[in-house]
Design a protein around this nucleic acid. Structure first.
Lengths: 329, 329
DNA sequence: CCTGCCGCTGACAACGTTGTCAGCCGTGCC
DNA sequence: GGCACGGCTGACAACGTTGTCAGCGGCAGG
């Protein structure tokens, strides 16, 4: 910038004014400065700008895994909103590890991101408090902050979605419906389990703990659990899987078994669910909506909005493709 | 930092030394400083550090779309290598738009990223030259830089991979093999088409232009092209699709037609290809390998390595799952 | 003619670090 | 006792911007 000023025969500050489109510069002078900028190929140093102004025009996004379709759709939606707001996105994968999440968030804060969108892996975000006090804005997505942390959050209607799925299966004649969910320490998994129990209860069907299995979506575990359930004297005639990976794992295990297969409804849509035979009936959640709304809440606060923390629930919707409409034998 | 210095009763510079683990500080003093740091919750301002040192410990990644499985796997691999090297990743989606790519790259450069990994959308990277001269390191992934731009690049063995696929189909008795590729202006699409022609020629089978269709992976276009080809007097008995999205589109179109279906080999593996019936035979490319190797090349250069630009080809491998082993009728 | 104002420009400090260099003190050697 | 040296510490400038304030000349109004 100094060089540009010299080349254009003006002071540093005038160049700064031109670069920032500040008013009060003689058009002729401005033109001369712009010419010098082009000639020298000058580009503003953002780091210095940040140091002086305090805003980085960068937000941080912490998700579980950038390569997971659910989160990468969320990532994309966040990126789109950020671009519209002139911001860039630093993304990090927490691998569902609270320590890694904390490390990422703090590193982002060191970089002075303007705001954070976090899919929390842990339940203790005390480490966030100093940053929040320092003016960093944070929004939680997919899972809420623990009580006491008063932040905006965007969630799916987990219980309601699972409820829709259970009702759908009941409508198709099922009463023995198994639920295969992720580890109940994960907020969404717990909510979905709750939705399952509530819907059964509402239909007057007693929940049977032997038809419930909660844990990580490994294929071995899934094989064991399905085998166990299907060998029961009154086996489930339908399965409800609690997230996309569980659905896929269940499909893989079922593929190793002879028909007839139980009906299946999966929470979370996934690509190609329509190409499998029968098509997989799913409860679609709006992953990009999650990202979009979270980013919008964030930028609203960044542009000065204050107000009580909001908690937004995005609706899910059931897509019938065949697997959920199989009747009980 | 000033506050910490005051609190610990030392000079600014001593705090800086402690924070950076520089040698030559009395352990007692260091302990006092560290205590003050903890007490005040001090965190170093990275922007100021960057301004002073010139290194941001951040790299930029420009891909086509963060939500595309191929690119998000690449993204994850880059992130992993970056983390191991103490760096963060700024990611942007170019949407296959050269102008957007340029904008992203220049914005990243304004932020003084140490290096760039680019999946180029366009063929003109003249805009990169000033940045390269200014010391930014760039590595291309999936597609090479245009001649004259002497940069490291990591590519898949596109022609060889398609060749494998063609040979596989020929081995299963096919001689009428159609090729459905993306727009030939895309480097990988052109290379794959070339591999197709070469492999046919090597087998002594004349290429038939009526069995070749190059263009974007829209379902309408795919439907038209497949209908046209399958209505020929001597229709193709096998299809080779040039990327993941084309494969999926072809599967969707085929699903609307009565059997028997032509054999199918798709370039690029995709999740659930094993759950479709018959399983989809693919030529798997190593998308995370692409990201990993590109990031490794980048960090090698960032740590001082100089040397001629390298061009690395990653092998592909064929995974037979059923659809590519269907015999001709 | 003087005053006040406006449009434009520039000098200077400040943002929070780190690199450079100088200084202090104690120790060991001549 | 004088000197060199090493371990430790600190003062200061610099990185490239932007915010603040002051200054300049011209013009309108009193």
């Amino acid at each position: 910038m100094k060089d540009v000023a010299t080349a254009a025969g003006v002071a540093l500050k005038t160049v700064s004014r031109v670069v920032n489109d500040e008013p009060g510069v003689n058009p002729e002078t401005a033109a001369r400065v712009r010419a010098a900028i082009d000639r020298l190929g000058y580009r503003r140093n953002e780091s210095a700008r940040v140091l002086r102004r305090g805003r980085t025009a960068t937000i941080g996004l912490v998700i579980e895994d950038v390569s997971d379709p659910f989160y990468s759709a969320l990532n994309r939606a966040v990126e789109d909103v950020a671009t519209r707001n002139g911001s860039l996105v630093l993304t990090g994968s927490s691998a569902e590890n609270p320590a890694r999440e904390r490390e990422l968030v703090l590193t982002f804060c060191d970089r002075r991101v303007d705001g954070l969108i976090i899919v929390p892996a842990g339940n203790d975000h005390a480490y966030l408090l100093p940053e929040l006090k320092a003016g960093t804005v944070a929004v939680f997505a997919d899972r809420p902050p623990e009580p006491g942390l008063d932040l905006d959050a965007v969630l799916c209607d987990n219980a309601g979605g699972v409820g829709q799925g259970v009702e759908h299966l009941i409508r198709h004649g099922h009463r023995r419906i198994a639920f295969l969910g992720d580890h109940p320490a994960i907020f969404t998994a717990a909510e979905r389990l709750h939705g399952y129990r509530t819907a059964l209860e509402a239909a007057g069907i007693p929940a049977d703990d032997r038809l419930i299995s909660m844990g990580p979506p490994g294929q071995a575990r899934m094989a064991v659990e399905l085998t166990r359930m299907l060998a029961l004297p009154d086996p489930p005639t339908a399965l409800l899987t609690g997230n996309g990976r569980l659905t896929v794992t269940a499909l893989r295990v079922l593929a190793t078994r002879p028909p007839p297969h139980p009906a299946l409804v999966g929470f979370d849509d996934f690509e190609l669910s329509d190409l499998i035979v029968p098509g997989v009936t799913v409860i679609a959640q709006n992953s990009s909506g999650l990202g979009r709304v979270a980013a919008e809440l964030l930028f609203r606060r960044l542009s000065g909005h204050t107000g009580p923390a909001r908690r937004i629930r995005l609706p899910t919707h059931l897509i019938a493709r065949g697997s959920g409409e199989l009747p009980p034998p």
